[in-house]
Design a protein around this nucleic acid. Sequence first.
DNA 1: TCATTATAGATTATCTATCATAAACGGTTG
DNA 2: CAACCGTTTATGATAGATAATCTATAATGA
Lengths: 211, 211
Amino acid sequence: MTDDENTTTAGRIAEAIGERIISGELQPDAPLRQDHIAREFNSSHVPVREAFRQLQAQHLVVAVPRRGVRVAPLNINSVKEIAEMRAALEVVALRNAAPKLTSSHLARIELALIEGDTAQTIQEFEMANRAFHHALVAPCAMPRLLASLDGLQLANSRLVFAMARSSGWRPRSNQDHRLILQALRARNVDQACSLLARHIQTIERLALSSS
Amino acid sequence: MTDDENTTTAGRIAEAIGERIISGELQPDAPLRQDHIAREFNSSHVPVREAFRQLQAQHLVVAVPRRGVRVAPLNINSVKEIAEMRAALEVVALRNAAPKLTSSHLARIELALIEGDTAQTIQEFEMANRAFHHALVAPCAMPRLLASLDGLQLANSRLVFAMARSSGWRPRSNQDHRLILQALRARNVDQACSLLARHIQTIERLALSSS
DNA sequence: TCATTATAGATTATCTATCATAAACGGTTG
DNA sequence: CAACCGTTTATGATAGATAATCTATAATGA
């Protein structure tokens, strides 16, 4: 999904722990003890510490010196923050990606859309959702922007899973997605951008109202 | 400047190396050997590796497994990318900060403006520039957004120092800053936001035309 | 008595030192 | 050009030291 092979031990550990945090298997504020994790992954504490730094940069854990690392807390304000950041950045990315969109890109976007339609579990739906938004902006070829958006998408997924767990809330956004694809096919970039911004803000509003 | 005391060895190393990269003392693509750095800071290689991960997250170095770490390259495309990201995110931050701006906030913004006027070296000017933009958005109280903007400001400073070094280019933006402060004093948030966005894009255009 | 403080022991993070392994680089030679 | 070899280097393991934190118990004072 992400991209790199993660040939290094620290990278593998960071990915595994990160998935647990996003899925909700690791609860907010849960302490992460480096020696336990090292034992679990048959490694020493050195790669674990490196993995912690990586997760810290993704805002998935918080570290306080001499007191170790905990799963980052989940507060309601971050829903709004992440939505606003995503709305602003995805529009920039889409505006830069749109002129470079080929028919094969459009096909990939539509594929993610269909996968969202046929998704049975919320995990499958969220994976398709990530794939859609990623395919939408990937052609912009702005690596730093794409990395930021990947991080925001992961944080967003974490919030979605947490809300699904606590209140059975389930996002429905494929109709929005379909309209965005339609606007792009019609080469109407302005409309696609405004639909995208509205779409992301709508998700935020739904999430906040259901809490 | 940043905020934390950096009581940990890895944090100190990351900060020191980061400053060298931003100032241009460490050239793009220069290899960073962990054992050399460990000797320099009287530490072992373990904290150095943690510092590398932190710098990697800031996009100041690139790491390829089994081949170590190098100073991140400086390419002309990243000027545009960083400017577009900053313009989009700073506007979001300012819009959220504006309603919370007190007179003491405004005084702090003006202080940074004056420091920019009296700056003698480009280092002083850039420090005042960072202080201005930071003071402008800090009251928004969105930690993730502020962290992103800090990273983008650092990347921007690195570009400024590199261009000052290669072509004697020197940014002049205090007039823009003054107009933004004026609009905020008049409680004209929309105008302040549009001035800010235009300001950041103008810097990008100047930079690209002088290269 | 009850609440607060002090203290001792266990746990844990942080870092050092040394070693082992493997990959990459540089040169030489077939 | 390609195969080989030694050096350098990244990566990780292991053992141990230090210091900070936590916990539980004991002591003190109101």
